[in-house]
Design a protein around this nucleic acid. Structure first.
Lengths: 243, 243
DNA sequence: CGTCGTATTGAAGCGTCTCAACGTGAGTGG
DNA sequence: CCACTCACGTTGAGACGCTTCAATACGACG
């Protein structure tokens, strides 16, 4: 049953951060879930909404983005299975950005009320979820650096390495290759670059033999060189809970 | 006594978010504080540190920044009295960026252990502090948009309006004027722009009669026009706890 | 009164944008 | 099964915002 699979994924994800005891586990498994399927490019929640549920990605990829003046759009994050992109809506009641699907998605919706009740009773789970939102913020900080300071090619390399590194933690990569159905326009919206220029930057990366990017698959050929070019230090992802 | 003043400021700040009861208040007032003074441009904590205390700004201004390759630096946030810039270090144990003073500062250091103990016993305080870190993240998101999408002049206007709007909440402005001891280099490091170009952008803003910026004071002449130019919508600051 | 950090100005160069045309591949309907 | 469509990727050319370098001006401070 899909609900159980989703809950299992959630338990697994949170167990990676802290040693949950049986009561914590039971509290998680008691969460009421609503499973929903969505097609590509559908809005999940929009800016200005006051959602009463959080959304966990079970399958597929989700984008967080913000509309700026003149119809421009900034992508703020790419989310993978296991992520809860709008966890912050638990305490920030009006959404200041929007959530939409990139690909076909399976989503699990969890009522705020149930999460809040759980958090009050189980401080360790509160801590684990809080930490999740803090890592979110750490990634935002790195994106500010990326967009603000790095050259075009370095920015792109950094973004791709981040996605790769995070996907590796859920076992969704294989020898530097991973599925990621992104368009050049979306890449540009994530790093503040026109899609035309994205195209040229990708050609440079390809010409250097660093990576290949095609129909919804990315292959990294030379991770070491790419990391150097990107000025990539994965500390900001806080993957090790001991740190 | 300075400790009491600092605690009072903390209580006031957190009371603005939620209705604290007497027990919450007492728990806050029982926090052990160490007051420290620092001169301008001193490092408070550095990237890679594992702090065992959080730092609250009592007086003065604090900068969060991250070093990028080639000695470049990105400023991530400007912090004002009442802020706790490294609250995230409670659960993200290794610092991925650094904290330093802009001006002369009075800081109050609170041990993590004391905060953690308080949080476990008083869920409402946990919620209020969690919310604080979520607002932090919301501001980071807006900065990504700012640096990624807006034109130079719009970016600068947005930054200044953000500082102004936040300072207004603590009563540190007067008719559009406020003290803020920032250099053009720092402004540039915050919005991803060379200090030379910052200078020219500020001249444009001055020439349009929108604002004046001089020796540690900024004066906004035409807030309406400035907001329009900046594409500024203060929703992202989440100043109203009901929203 | 000299020094040092910051602000200001000019000029050359380049990274990136915009506009516009064209190529390509997947999906759709006649 | 082919023609059509549509979204996405690719290419070229010109314009412009911004950077860098370098020189000069200003203002606070010892």
């Amino acid at each position: 049953m899909e609900k159980n699979a989703a809950l299992a994924a959630l338990v697994k994800r949170l167990s990676a951060t802290a040693a949950l005891n049986d009561e914590d586990r039971r509290a998680l498994e008691a969460l009421p879930l609503r499973i929903e399927r969505k097609g590509p490019n559908e809005t999940i929640v929009a800016s200005g909404d006051r959602p009463s549920l959080c959304c966990m990605v079970v399958n597929g990829f989700v984008i967080r983005s913000k509309a700026v003046a003149d119809g421009r759009r900034q992508i703020l994050a790419f989310h993978q299975p296991g992520d809860i992109p709008d966890l912050q809506s638990l305490y920030l009641h009006v959404l200041d950005h929007e959530l939409s699907t990139m690909s076909e998605c399976v989503l699990a919706f969890i009522p705020h009320a149930a999460l809040r009740a759980m958090i009050t009773r189980r401080p360790l789970l509160a801590e684990v979820l809080w930490r999740d939102t803090l890592i979110d913020a750490a990634i935002f900080r790195e994106w500010i650096c990326n967009v603000g300071q790095r050259s075009g090619i370095s920015r792109m390399a950094h973004l791709i390495l981040e996605i790769y590194t995070r996907l590796k933690t859920i076992g969704a990569t294989k020898d530097g290759a991973f599925r990621f159905p992104v368009t050049q326009l979306q890449l540009g919206q994530a790093i503040g670059m026109s899609s035309v220029h994205v195209n040229r930057i990708l050609q440079e990366l390809r010409a250097e033999g660093l990576l290949q990017i095609g129909h919804s698959e990315i292959v990294i050929y030379d991770e070491r060189k790419l990391r150097e070019l990107a000025d990539f230090d994965q500390l900001y992802l806080h993957l090790d809970p001991a740190l």
